[in-house]
Computed example of a mutant assay.
Amino acid sequence: MLSCEKLLDLRWNKFQRNAGLLKRQLTWLFNEHLGKKGISGFTNVDYQSKVLSIELTMPQDASHDTIRDTRGLSGTWGERSFSTLCFALALHGMTEAPFRAMDEFDVFMDAVSRKISLDTLVDFAVAHGSQWIFITPHDISMVKPGDRVKKQQLAAPRD
């Protein structure tokens, strides 16, 4: 019986160590994607209270105040949409899937954020070798087709 308790303790310690490593990896990947727009961020996963919090520091904010609530981000320039996309990509980077789909991820983004987001998504998809389906009502002419990138644009719906 004693050996079972030791094995259980050993497993629990490994689980705790892995949980801490995954939290750090999530923040690292999140920051990697945010950095493409000059933003920095931090994710905090509290397993005990089952709470995930995200903090961002915007480059244009001279006070360098940390934004702790994504509702405080500008919807006009797509900051909230871009940071959400970066968080989703960080999670995607930690999981395996043969294909993924994103629907209207760029709806509230300005043209600059949309370009950065599309470039980030395409680079991520090609680097990870997975298939992605992006659904957007916006122009995707800036995405260049290639050996691993195929575009399919549907005609606009008729009213």
Rank of each mutant, 00 (worst) to 15 (best):
G75C: 03
S49Q: 04
N31P: 14
P98G: 00
M94F: 14
I116K: 00
G38I: 08
L56N: 02
Y47W: 09
T27E: 14
Q153M: 05
F99H: 11
W28C: 11
A125M: 07
F15K: 15
I67W: 03
S63L: 02
F99G: 12
T27L: 15
S81F: 08
S49V: 03
L8V: 09
L22W: 04
V112S: 07
F82P: 07
L2Q: 14
V112M: 01
D46K: 02
R17W: 06
D61W: 02
K151Y: 04
E104P: 07
S40K: 13
T66F: 07
R11H: 07
F108L: 11
E96R: 07
T43N: 04
R148H: 08
D9P: 00
L29T: 02
R68K: 10
R114Y: 12
S141G: 01
A19S: 04
C4H: 07
M142V: 13
G41K: 10
P157C: 03
N13M: 04
M1V: 08
L118Q: 12
N18K: 11
D159T: 03
S113R: 09
S63V: 00
M102A: 06
G72D: 09
G129A: 06
Q152T: 09
Q131M: 03
L154N: 06
M142L: 07
A62N: 03
L21Y: 08
A19F: 10
V122I: 13
R158L: 11
F99E: 11
S53T: 15
G129C: 03
T70C: 01
R114G: 10
L21G: 03
D65K: 11
F30K: 15
K36D: 05
G38N: 14
K151S: 03
I67G: 04
Q25S: 14
K36I: 07
A97E: 08
A111V: 15
T136Y: 08
T66V: 15
V51Q: 05
A19Q: 10
L26Q: 03
K37I: 11
I133H: 00
F134C: 09
A90G: 09
G20H: 09
A125C: 04
V126P: 06
P137Q: 05
Q131G: 01
S113M: 10
K36L: 13
M58T: 01
A127I: 01
D46E: 05
S74C: 09
